[in-house]
Design a protein around this nucleic acid. Sequence first.
DNA 1: ATTAGCACTCTTTTGAGTTGAGTGCTAACA
DNA 2: TGTTAGCACTCAACTCAAAAGAGTGCTAAT
Lengths: 347, 347
Amino acid sequence: MSEQELDERKTKILHAIIKNYMETGEPVGSRTISKYTDLNLSSATIRNEMADLEELGYILQPHTSAGRIPSDKGYRFYVDHLIEQKDREVSEMKEFVIEHTEKMERVLKQMAKLLANNTNYASIITAPQVHSNKVKFLQLSNVDASHILAVVVLEGNIVKNKIIDVEEPIDNEQMLKLNILLNTNLTGLSIDQINLGTIAVLKEKAGIHSNIISDVLDAVAEAISEDEDLEIYTSGATNILKYPELSDSGRVSELLTEFEEKNQLVSLVTEHFSEEENTGIQVYIGNEAPIQTMKDCSIVTATYELGEGVKGTIGIIGPKRMDYENVMDNLKTLKAQLDGIWKKPKS
Amino acid sequence: MSEQELDERKTKILHAIIKNYMETGEPVGSRTISKYTDLNLSSATIRNEMADLEELGYILQPHTSAGRIPSDKGYRFYVDHLIEQKDREVSEMKEFVIEHTEKMERVLKQMAKLLANNTNYASIITAPQVHSNKVKFLQLSNVDASHILAVVVLEGNIVKNKIIDVEEPIDNEQMLKLNILLNTNLTGLSIDQINLGTIAVLKEKAGIHSNIISDVLDAVAEAISEDEDLEIYTSGATNILKYPELSDSGRVSELLTEFEEKNQLVSLVTEHFSEEENTGIQVYIGNEAPIQTMKDCSIVTATYELGEGVKGTIGIIGPKRMDYENVMDNLKTLKAQLDGIWKKPKS
DNA sequence: ATTAGCACTCTTTTGAGTTGAGTGCTAACA
DNA sequence: TGTTAGCACTCAACTCAAAAGAGTGCTAAT
C-alpha cells in the first residue's frame, strides 16, 4: 500500500459505509454503496476496495456473506478526520439559561435530562470536584442543647452542612469566639491545605474548648469532602434499549446495572487520557473506554471548569454508531454554558 | 358452592399452586400438584378441584391445555390468609445500625440498596415529608457583599439552605436583629402555618428592611418546601430483568423508564388506600396499584414515621409471584428501625 | 368420592427446504 | 492497468409442516 494509507476513493467509500451503518445499524453491502453514492463505480469495484479496507482494519465482516460494519479503527478515523466541523443549531440548549442562585444539583439534573432527550443516548454529568476549592465562609450555631450545626460555604457558593453531637452545651459567647477563630484561620484555605498542622494550631488557640474543636474540625472536614465519592447524575439510561446491538438481554442488564450503581462510571469521568487539545472533548470508542462492560459503546465526554481547579465532566454514552457530530456539538454548547457559570458574580 | 367459599382441600391445592408458581414462574399442572404434595390425590381429582378454583376466579389458564397460574384474586387470598406470620431471621437488616448524625439522604440510599439486595426486587424509599414539620432554628449570615446564606433546621435535624442574592449589603448589627426577629417569630411553627398573615406581621416588624424580608422569606419558604416534589430513592430497578414475565422487551422499557423518571412513583407512595390495620404494611397486587404500567407487578409498601406527621414510605416492586413473606418481613424490620430514629435524642 | 384411561387441544421444538443478500474470484473489456 | 460483468458459493433468516410434550376434560370403572 502507498505511503498514505487511504487514498481519496477509499476514504469516500469508508465514509459512505460508516454513514450508512450509522443510520441503519445493519451491515452494509457493496451494492448499496455503488448505488447510493456519486462515485459511479460498480459493486464489483467497491468489493475490491472493501477487501482492501478490511485488510487495513477499518471495517470487518460479522460473518462471510454479510456486508461490512466499521471497526473501532474505522470509527476512530471517522471521528478524527471525517466529521465536518460545522456550527450547527442546538436550539433548546441555547435558550437554556441558568440562574446563579439555582441549586447546582438541580441544574445538573436538568442538564442531564436535556442532554439525554436531545441526543437519545444516555447522559452523565458529574458535579464539580472541589478538592482545591477554597473555604469562603464558615459558621457554627447552637441548634439545641446537644447539637451544633456547622455550615461551610465554598468558593462558587457550594454549601455543605453537618449536625454535630456535643457532650456539653457551649454558651453563645464561646460560640462567637469559636466562629471568629475558625473564620480567621480557615477562610481562603483550600481543602487540601487544611492539614494536621493547621488543626493543631487551631486547637491550641481554642483554649478551653480544644477538646471539642477536633470534633468540630472532623465534622467540617467530613462535610467538605463528603462527596469524595463524587456525585454523578445520569439520565436516559433506558435509551440504550433503543439500540438493538446493545440490547440483547444479558448485555443490557449489565449496562443498566452499571448505570444504576454509578460508582463504576467514575472511571469514565476522572481519567482523561486522550483529551483533544483544541475542542476539550474526548471520544472513547469501544475498548478505548476504561469500563469493560462498555466495550460495545462509545463514550464522548467534555470537561467544564467552574473556576481554577474546580472541574466537572459531562458525557454521553451510546452505541458505537452514535451520531458523533450531534453529540459533540451538544457537549460543546453545554460546556460553554457551564464554564465558569457559578464563578461570576450575580447577573 | 357451600357457605364457605373454599374448603380445606381447595385451600391446600390453591396454596400448592401458588407456591409452585412462585418458584418456577411456569404454569403448574395437575400432575405436579398430585405428586409433590402430601394430599395423596390423583391428578384427575386435582383437575376437578382446579376446574372449581378456576370457576371461582382464584386461578386461570393462559390457554387451553396449559397449567394454571394464580389470578390477582388468588394472590390476594394468599396474602390475606395463607402467609404464615413467623418471625423470620432477617440477619443483615438487624445488624444495620443507624447513626443519628448520619445524613438522612445517605442512610436512605443505603437502605434502598440493602432492601433491593436482600429481596432481589426493586426497592423504593422516600424521604420523610415535612409538610407539618416544625422549624427548630433559623439563621441568616452574610457570605459576601451580595449574598446571604439562609439556613433552616427542622424538627428531626433536617437541614435546608439557600443562597440569596441581595442588592445592598446588610451590616452585622442589622443582621443580628433580623435573625432574632425571624427566630422569635418562626421557631416552633410548622411549615403549613407560615402563611401570608405571618409574613405581613414580620414585614411590619422588620422596619427598614421590610423590602428585603419578603425576598428572604420567599427563599426560606423555597428552601423548606424545596422538595415538595419529594425525594425518591430507588435501587435494584434492574432486578426486574430477572423475571421473564416482566421482561419481554417493550414492557421492560416502560417499567425501567418509570423508575428512572421517578415522579410517577410518587403516586405509589402517597395514596395508602388499603392500609392494613395491624401490620402497617400495604400490598397492591396487579391492577390494585395506581400505576397502569405496573399492572403485572405487585407492590408492597410500609409507612415509617419519624415524628408526628413526618412520614416516609419504603416499598418493594416485583413480579406478582414475589416472595411476599420475605418481602413483608424485610419491610417490617426496616420500618421498625426507621420509626422515630431521628426523633430520639442522641444515643 | 376417587381414579384410570383416553381423546383432544394447543404450544414448543425440530429440521428440512427455500430465499436472499452478499461475497470472492475469474475472465473480459476499455 | 483499472474497471466491470458474471457466476458459483456461503450463510443467516425465514417458512412450514411434522412431531413431541404437557395438560386438560370427560367418561366409565372402582
